[in-house]
Simulated scan of single mutants.
Amino acid sequence: MSTIYAEALMIVIVIILSTIVFVWVVPALTSNTAQDNAGAAYSENFKTIQGQFATYVQSIPETVRNSPSPPTPYQTCTLSSPVTSPTSANIFVPPNGACSITASVGSVFVSPGASLTVVGATINGDLNGNYSSGINLRNARVTGFTGLYYVQLVNISGSLLNTSGNGAAMYGGGRGSFTMTNTTVTGMVENEVGHQTFIIGNRISGDLEVESADQGQIINNTVASLDLDQNGVIVISGNTVNGPILYGTNGWCATGNNRISGSISGSCIGNTEVDVMNTGSIPVKLVAIYLSNLPLAGGLSWQLASGKQAQCGTTQSLACTQLPIIIPVRDMVQITMRWTPPPGAFPLPWDYVYFVFVSSHSNFVDGYLYFSIGLGLPSQSRLENRVCPPCY
Results as ranks from 00 to 15, higher is better:
Val287Cys: 04
Ser205Ile: 04
Gln52Thr: 03
Thr279Ser: 07
Ser81Ala: 12
Gly307Phe: 03
Pro244Val: 00
Gly97Ser: 08
Ser31Pro: 04
Gln35Met: 08
Val274Glu: 08
Pro70Gly: 03
Thr340Arg: 09
Ile11Phe: 07
Gln215Met: 12
Val333Lys: 07
Asn202Leu: 07
Ser43Asp: 13
Ile327Met: 07
Ser360Lys: 05
Glu44Tyr: 05
Glu62Lys: 14
Thr19Ile: 11
Gly147Pro: 08
Gly147Glu: 13
Gln52Cys: 06
Gln196Lys: 02
Ser372Leu: 07
Gln196Leu: 15
Val108Trp: 00
Tyr74Phe: 13
Gly158Leu: 01
Gln215Val: 12
Thr117Leu: 10
Ser111Asp: 11
Ala345Tyr: 08
Trp339Lys: 12
Gly176Pro: 08
Ala54Cys: 01
Val276Ser: 06
Leu300Thr: 01
Ile373Met: 11
Val287Tyr: 02
Asn202Ser: 10
Val14Gly: 10
Leu137Cys: 01
Pro283Val: 01
Ser43Leu: 15
Gln311Tyr: 09
Pro389Asp: 11
Pro71Arg: 02
Asp214Trp: 02
Thr33Phe: 14
Val387Met: 11
Ala8Gln: 11
Phe178Lys: 02
Thr222Ile: 04
Ile327Cys: 05
Val356Glu: 03
Thr117Val: 12
Val210Gly: 03
Arg330Phe: 09
Tyr131Glu: 14
Tyr56Thr: 04
Ile20Ala: 15
Ser237Gly: 08
Gly280Ile: 06
Asp275His: 13
Ser164Ile: 05
Ala54Thr: 00
His195Asn: 14
Met337Asp: 05
Thr240Asp: 14
Arg259Val: 15
Ile234Leu: 06
Val241Asp: 08
Thr30Gly: 13
Phe22Asn: 10
Val274Pro: 00
Leu127Trp: 00
Thr146Val: 15
Thr321Cys: 07
Arg141Trp: 00
Leu304Pro: 05
Ile204Trp: 04
Leu153Asp: 14
Tyr352Val: 04
